[in-house]
Lab assay of single mutants.
Amino acid sequence: MIFPGATVRVTNVDDTYYRFEGLVQRVSDGKAAVLFENGNWDKLVTFRLSELEAVK
């Protein structure tokens, strides 16, 4: 189960963010908004829950 605050990895091989890890900001309607941070940039991207896996 994916909840806000969880760290997730993108599993969709066709996505630009494949294998990126980010922090879930919100979850609704089968989608999750994931925040990616890297140095001087932040990006908030929405994914279907089926495209994400929780990082242990």
Rank of each mutant, 00 (worst) to 15 (best):
M1K: 11
M1A: 11
M1F: 10
I2K: 02
I2R: 01
I2W: 04
I2Y: 04
I2V: 06
I2F: 07
I2Q: 01
F3S: 08
F3P: 04
F3Y: 12
F3E: 09
F3M: 10
P4Q: 07
P4R: 07
P4N: 05
P4I: 09
P4E: 08
G5W: 03
G5A: 02
G5E: 02
G5C: 07
G5Q: 03
A6K: 05
A6N: 07
A6E: 07
T7S: 07
T7F: 11
T7K: 14
T7L: 14
T7R: 15
V8A: 03
V8I: 05
V8S: 00
V8C: 02
V8H: 01
R9C: 07
R9L: 06
R9Q: 06
R9I: 09
V10R: 01
V10G: 01
V10F: 01
V10I: 07
V10S: 02
V10T: 02
V10E: 00
T11R: 08
T11F: 04
T11N: 07
T11W: 04
N12W: 04
N12L: 08
N12D: 06
V13E: 10
V13H: 08
V13L: 07
D14R: 11
D14F: 12
D14H: 13
D14A: 11
D15W: 04
D15I: 05
D15H: 15
T16A: 14
T16F: 14
T16I: 14
T16D: 11
Y17K: 03
Y17D: 02
Y17E: 02
Y17M: 08
Y17Q: 03
Y17W: 13
Y18S: 03
Y18V: 02
Y18H: 05
Y18M: 02
Y18N: 03
Y18Q: 02
Y18W: 06
R19P: 06
R19A: 11
R19S: 12
R19V: 03
R19T: 09
R19K: 11
R19Q: 14
F20M: 14
F20G: 04
F20I: 07
F20V: 07
F20S: 08
F20D: 04
E21D: 04
E21R: 07
E21N: 05
E21V: 15
E21H: 09
E21L: 12
E21S: 07
G22P: 00
G22I: 04
L23S: 07
L23W: 06
L23K: 13
L23G: 02
L23V: 15
L23F: 07
V24S: 00
V24M: 01
V24P: 00
V24L: 03
V24Y: 01
V24H: 00
V24N: 00
Q25K: 10
Q25T: 13
Q25P: 00
Q25G: 04
R26S: 15
R26F: 14
R26C: 15
R26I: 12
R26A: 14
V27M: 07
V27T: 04
V27G: 00
V27P: 00
V27L: 06
S28Q: 11
S28A: 12
S28M: 12
D29Y: 07
D29F: 08
D29I: 05
D29C: 10
G30D: 08
G30P: 01
G30W: 04
K31F: 15
K31L: 13
K31I: 12
K31Q: 09
K31E: 11
A32D: 01
A32M: 02
A32P: 01
A32T: 01
A33D: 15
A33R: 07
A33N: 08
A33W: 15
A33C: 13
A33K: 07
V34C: 03
V34W: 02
V34Y: 01
V34I: 07
V34H: 01
L35N: 04
L35P: 00
L35K: 08
L35I: 07
F36R: 00
F36W: 02
E37K: 14
E37A: 12
N38C: 15
N38R: 12
N38Q: 11
N38K: 10
G39C: 13
G39T: 09
G39I: 09
N40Q: 11
N40S: 12
N40A: 12
N40H: 11
N40L: 12
N40W: 09
W41P: 13
W41V: 12
W41F: 12
W41I: 11
W41Y: 10
W41H: 10
W41T: 11
W41N: 10
W41C: 15
W41A: 11
D42P: 13
D42K: 15
D42M: 15
D42F: 15
D42Y: 15
K43L: 14
L44V: 13
L44E: 13
L44M: 08
L44T: 09
L44K: 05
V45R: 09
V45W: 04
V45A: 05
V45M: 07
T46K: 07
T46P: 03
T46D: 12
T46L: 12
T46R: 06
T46C: 14
T46M: 12
T46V: 13
T46S: 09
F47P: 03
F47G: 02
R48K: 14
R48E: 15
R48D: 15
R48V: 11
R48M: 14
L49F: 09
L49K: 03
L49M: 07
L49T: 08
S50P: 05
S50E: 14
S50T: 10
S50K: 05
S50L: 06
E51K: 02
E51A: 06
E51T: 03
L52R: 00
L52W: 01
L52E: 01
L52G: 00
L52H: 00
L52F: 01
L52V: 05
E53N: 04
E53Y: 05
E53S: 06
E53R: 06
E53A: 07
E53W: 04
E53H: 05
A54Q: 09
A54D: 05
A54F: 13
A54K: 08
V55H: 03
V55W: 04
V55C: 06
V55F: 06
V55K: 04
V55M: 06
V55Y: 05
K56F: 12
K56N: 13
K56W: 10
K56P: 13
K56M: 13
